[in-house]
Structures are given as structure tokens and as C-alpha cells.
Design a protein around this nucleic acid. Structure first.
Lengths: 325, 325
DNA sequence: GTGAAAGCGCTAACAG
DNA sequence: CTGTTAGCGCTTTCAC
């Protein structure tokens, strides 16, 4: 191809890479030849030649693309990275820790510049060597286990306390709690926060209204139906993530005496539906992750940092209903 | 590193790549040495050596990560690709056609195996050369312009007809229509379908209640407020995509006499809210895109295909309200 | 079952 | 402003 425009490969390379020392006329000639041949620089070769830490790709591993929490996180991260010339590559783990590891390996083999992980795994020692070699890792939403890497987390404990305290203040004593898989750290932290505030209020038997392992909307809907059929029925519900809140809303539709409801995570139409929720800022989580990662790329070799983002209770009606029974 | 375990580079390569002709004992020794050094095969070099069309990366360009339509599409695509050993790389264009082109170039330079694009651009001739070179392109949601590439589209025209016909059948004569940017093909097709059914019903002046360019939720909310303040007010609304429907629901909250409402695209809590919508299957769009792309990778050199996915009206209450005034 | 040499397409380094 | 040489880390080919 260089031949076609009558220059050396190096000149062609310079022309196509926008390097300065090329005659305008030469540049144009090379460009035209390239266009005509449908030729373009091989980024793979470029990256190999330039060396490992020159890639502009940052990987993101998340559990579920369709969960708005993750997509908003991705969105915040992507925007911040873009402003620094980096490109985001997202892969979905389907909350499967084996597949997560396979994806991490694949991205690391491709020498991504850094890796952001919302991990479903319970062990991250396999990243130790890479980490020591200076590849930045940032864990989001869930902390790393057995690895001293940066993390951006939510104040899960505090958020759940806010939810519990709010319902207790409205006069509720029997509060149904619906949670995700017990193995998830976010679930455990939220549950601990809720337990703390319940016990402080002298409601030590709160766990009688706890249902766990509601990992999708359907399971949450069933769990809520089941809770509401207990005698005596709970007068309020605390749903511990956005999918569970959706399921609860489905279960509550047409239910005669709706219990009060506070959910963790905001919902798309939460405002319209009047659902009180514990809100936080998923985009900000992405931006913070980007900041940590950019600092590492810039050479920061300090100890692992942990950023904890605040939560806030947003009263929209459902959480303020007084006990019915 | 090969040195450490006392074998040649080639043997090390074989051991780490799971190639068959290696003694079990040698393989183990190499593996251990690699683990200890935190060494892993360089996928960039591998890809360079193996040649262009051996990459396992497929690119996806979408307008907005946080729009559930796109994330569900991505999810369907990702799952299908994964089953065929391919990995999805998602990048967000922010609905900006220049940035879209930059991203496409970046991914093509990296020699992705194929590219799936939900394009915001009005011209795709710049992909012509690559396309002739055999890189598969699949356009989703919006068709390619000036390029004979595969596409998976919705029956936008038919869906809008269904919406219009449904509202007319319920007795509505003044229907407010809120649409996205007029330049988008999806918008144009939906508008054409709606126009057709309105004109067939003798309602030739329907365009008096049309507002376009409501590109985000806030703009849609304002547009609906404005429509409802007209005299005489519309008795029904057709909102032409999910963001617009969300905005309309916000505007309608607390509105005394709610007009009937049919929206294009489903909503997360559409069932709970009782919103009648034109539904379709974004995951299926992703799967179909994967099928087209896999066929091309398998050597299919036939003419460009176009798959059109059906839409369906889902009556949930809001679209069945009779005219109030 | 293992090894040596060559080369994928590019760019860093150094001429000219 | 342009050209030459070498080599990034791997795998292909061929030999042992």
C-alpha cells in the first residue's frame, strides 16, 4: 500500500497517524491511496509495538447489562474515561463467578489498561499477580476479597438504617424484609444496618418477617405475596434492591390494604409511582471509579483506597403510610 | 519466563495455550512458573500473528447505555455471541454521529470481528471499503444509509398504526402526538404509520396536535404540558418512545382529567402503572443481529438482509380510557 | 514431544 | 521532511 503512493512504510505510517513531520502533499497522497484500497492502520500491531501500558481500553465487568443500576454506572464511567482519551469495554458476567474470571482473563490477556469489576465472586486472589504488576483494578458496588485493590462502594449499612428508622418512625412494628442472595456483601451490609436499627427499637424478633434469596423480579413478587399472607401481616415492607422493589410493586397491585414500602435503589418511574426509596448516585460511582483508575494510571502507587458514597431517603408517599392493622 | 521452567518459548506457548502435544508434566511446570511470575500470554501479539479475522471481539455501538431498550438489546446480543465464543465490546456514542464514527474507526482499527451499530448518523458510506473487505456490519433499530449492510429493524410503521387505530377505536378524535428528533428514521416511520391511520379515519388535521424534537424526558414532559393546555385539549396521547412516555407520565401526574395514553416501547413498570404500550422484543433484536453476523462470519456472502421484528399492542388500561371532553 | 527460525504490521531510534 | 533497521511476543512451519 505504501508502494502505491510511492513512499516508505514509515512515511505512510506517519501520514496515517497524524504525526507532524510529513509534507501536506505527501499526507494527502497517502490518505487517498489508503482510502482507495480500503486500508487502515492495524491497531493490534501498533499496540504490540508500543508496549503493554499504552492501550486505551478499560474493561468493565458487570453482572447484568439490563439492570439500570449497572447501566447508569457504566454510563458515568464511560463519560469520564472518554474525557481522558480512554475507551470503555463492557462485558457481562451474568452474575456467574466462573464466567467473570474467564472474562477478566480474556481482557487482561488483551492488555486492557485497567479493569473495573462489579464482582459476583467471593475470592479475587487470582488477580494478585497482575495487580502487583501495576494493572489498576477498581472494584465497584462490592468490595474485593483477599486483594488490596481500590473500591467504590455504597453506604449500604447506613442506607438500610435510614429505611428501617423511617418505617419505625411512621409507627410500624412488623416490617417485611425482602433480600437478595445471602452471599452478596451488599445484601449482608444492608441487612446488618436494618437489624441494628430494629434491635435498637426493641424489635428483636424482626427476622420473623425476613425472606432472602429473592434474586429476580418474579421471586420477589412471590416472596411479597407470601409475606402478606402471614398472620399477623406486616404493615410495611423494606425491599433491598431495585429488582425486588419492582417485584413488590407487582405483588401489591390491587392488594386491598397496601403496606408501607421503602426500597433500596431508585426506580425509573419511582416518582410517578410515589415509591419512597433509598437513593444514591450510580453515575457518580462510575465517575469515582474513573478517578481512582486515572490516578493509578498516572503513577499513584499508594495504598488501596476505598470511597464510600452516601445514600439518602427520598420520601414519595409509599414509605409514609401509617400502619393499617 | 520460558527460561525459568527450562523450556523453549514454543513449548511454553503450547503449554499455556492448551495445545495437545505437550507432556503433562512439562505443562504443569510451565503453568507454575507462569503463575509465580504473574505472567500471561499476550493476546495482542497472538492476534497480530494469527491474522485479522481471528479476533473474538464483536463491537456494539449504541446511543445511550442507560436506555433500557439498548441495554436489553445488548443483553440479547451478548448472550448469543457468548454461546459462539465471541465477546461483546460495547461503546456509547451519546447519539453523536461524529463520535460514532470515531468509535467505529477505533474498533475497526483494533480489528474487531464484526460491528453492530444502532446508528445516529445519516450516512455510512465511510464503511464501504471495510464492508467490501468482508467485515460484517449489522445495523440495529435504524437502517444503514448508502450502504448495503444487514439490518434488524422494528415494524415502526405498523406499531404506530396499531397505536393510532386503538385510540381511534376508543372514540378519540384529538390525539396529541409527541415525537423524537425529526431526523431519526424510527421517528419518521412511526409518524408515517400514525398519519396513515389518522387520515384513513378522516382526521386529516391530526398534525395540529403534533410536537416533535422531544429528545429527553424533560422535553417530553414540557411538550405534554403544552399539548394539554391547548383548547380544545387532546383527549388522548401517543408518545413515540420510552423516554417520551416517561415524560408524559410525569406530566400527567395529578392532572385532573387524564387523557388516554399509548406509548411506543415498553416501560419497566408499565404493568404496575397500567400503561398501554406498543411492545416488541429488544433482546430478540440482539439475537437476530447475532444470527446475521454469525452467518457472515461463517462465510455467507449473499446480499444484505433485512429482518423486521413485529410489534404488538399491550392494553393495560391507559389506552382504553374513553374521551373525557 | 520439543525446538529454531521466520514474520505478522507497526513504530522507536537513528540516519540522511 | 523521509527512509532504514530492528524488534514488540506470539504462532506457523518445518525439523528433530
Amino acid at each position: 500500500m505504501a508502494a502505491l503512493s510511492g513512499v516508505s512504510v514509515k512515511t505512510a505510517s506517519r501520514a496515517l497517524s497524524d504525526e507532524p513531520r510529513v509534507a501536506a502533499e505527501t499526507r494527502l497522497r497517502v490518505r487517498n491511496a489508503a482510502d482507495q484500497l480500503g486500508y487502515r492502520l492495524n491497531g493490534v500491531a501498533r499496540e504490540l509495538r508500543r508496549g503493554a501500558n499504552t492501550s486505551t481500553l478499560v474493561g468493565l465487568l458487570i453482572g447484568d447489562l439490563a439492570n439500570p443500576f449497572y447501566s447508569r454506572l457504566a454510563s458515568g464511567l464511560e463519560r469520564e474515561l472518554r474525557m481522558h482519551g480512554l475507551q470503555l469495554v463492557i462485558a457481562s458476567t451474568d452474575e456467574d463467578s466462573d464466567w467473570e474470571r474467564r472474562l477478566a482473563d480474556a481482557l487482561l490477556e488483551r492488555r486492557v489498561r485497567a479493569l473495573v469489576i462489579a464482582s459476583s465472586a467471593t475470592e479475587h486472589g487470582y488477580l494478585e499477580a497482575e495487580h502487583r504488576h501495576g494493572i489498576p483494578f477498581v472494584f465497584v458496588d462490592r468490595p474485593p476479597v483477599d486483594l488490596a485493590a481500590d473500591a467504590v462502594l455504597l453506604d449500604n449499612h447506613g442506607g438500610a438504617r435510614q429505611a428501617g428508622a423511617h418505617l419505625i418512625a411512621a409507627g410500624h412494628r412488623r416490617i417485611g424484609v425482602v433480600g437478595d442472595l445471602p452471599g452478596l456483601s451488599t445484601h449482608r451490609d444492608r441487612l446488618a444496618g436494618f437489624a441494628e436499627v430494629m434491635e435498637a427499637a426493641g424489635l428483636a424478633d424482626w427476622a420473623g418477617y425476613l425472606v432472602e434469596s429473592a434474586h429476580d423480579v418474579d421471586a420477589a413478587e412471590r416472596a411479597v405475596h407470601q409475606l402478606l399472607s402471614r398472620i399477623p401481616a406486616p404493615t410495611a415492607l423494606f425491599t433491598m434492591n431495585n429488582r425486588i422493589t419492582s417485584g413488590a410493586l407487582r405483588a401489591l397491585r390491587g392488594h386491598p390494604a397496601s403496606p408501607a414500602l421503602v426500597g433500596f435503589d431508585d426506580l425509573d418511574l419511582g416518582e410517578v409511582l410515589g415509591v419512597s426509596v433509598i437513593v444514591h448516585d450510580p453515575e457518580e460511582m462510575g465517575r469515582q471509579a474513573a478517578q481512582l483508575l486515572l490516578a493509578r494510571i498516572d503513577g499513584d502507587r499508594g495504598p488501596a483506597r476505598r470511597v464510600v458514597l452516601p445514600t439518602r431517603l427520598l420520601a414519595r408517599g409509599s414509605g409514609e403510610r401509617p400502619p393499617a392493622g
